[in-house]
Nucleic acid binder design. Structure first.
Lengths: 148, 148
DNA sequence: TTAAACACTACTAATTTGATGGACAAGATA
DNA sequence: TATCTTGTCCATCAAATTAGTAGTGTTTAA
């Protein structure tokens, strides 16, 4: 399951990705636009800053911006920061491998093999989806809704 | 994340799938073979029985068996019983849909769209993997290990 | 009739999740 | 320089979930 934290992080990053290069968006602004508790969002943004995905400016007229181009930041990166590995089970993870305490023969384990497949499929989607892709599809959906 | 409960359930079901038609396997036996706490396993098996995936016999010489052929029971069925929907987020679930409280425009939401893709990919793998497949790959891996 | 097995209920300790509150620091502007 | 606004950081917290454990009851074969 994706935590609320990760969902809020994705939504906040998508909001930041709609900004012009050089602009700043304030936490309160993001919180209101995305319907997210402001203080909780600040925690999330802080975490994202520490991991180098956003930059921030303090003081009056301060705010947040993406630290890198929107087409170089993926859903996978954001989710791993907030929730940890994508794999459904640690023994099937690439980034956070841990052996199952109860496992007798990891090589033969069909559960592990299958969960590795699931991980790979999820990673292919999430590591392939950039913030630029996301803002693109949202803009297109909105435009279609207006057209209809 | 797959819970321990779901992992234990999968392992127990795979163990049951290795049995001859008509045989029974006792909870204590499964628990020992799969390295799972016995009482916890009994709860899991009870749950699986209530959902019609295993049948049980009480009394001396009692035990458990699959209630249906091994090639008609999938990982997806078992995981949904133990952990609920496969989707990473309720608004992307087919079997357990729930709207996000904070969502302004569900149609346009890129997070939801992407999580639906992840759900579909996971479902394709997990609903396609039967207990018969699982015992098959485990047996093959074991045979290969002995040959090497 | 008794021993061995599943069935069921209840409880609990630890962890995770989803926050909230407040003090502090930095920076723009009057 | 004063001050107001905004991000930073720390501490705390309540509710839910997870991962079990314990014990009693019920069924059945021998």
């Amino acid at each position: 399951m994706l935590s609320q934290k990760a969902k809020y992080a994705l939504k906040a990053m998508i909001a930041l990705a709609t900004q012009e290069e050089g602009d700043l968006m304030q936490a309160a602004d993001i919180a209101e636009r995305q319907n997210v508790p402001r203080k909780f969002l600040e925690l999330i943004l802080l975490d994202l800053r520490k991991h180098g995905l956003v930059r921030s400016q303090r003081g009056k007229l301060g705010g947040y911006a993406l630290a890198k181009p929107a087409d170089t930041i993926t859903f996978g990166q954001i989710i791993r920061i907030m929730d940890g590995p994508l794999a459904p089970i640690p023994c099937a993870s690439l980034t956070g491998y841990r052996r199952c305490a109860d496992c007798r023969d990891e090589k033969a384990c069909a559960v592990r093999k299958t969960m590795r497949e699931v991980r790979d499929a999820a990673a292919a989607i999430l590591d392939g989806m950039t913030l630029a892709d996301a803002t693109g599809t949202e803009a297109a959906a909105l435009k279609a809704a207006i057209g209809a």
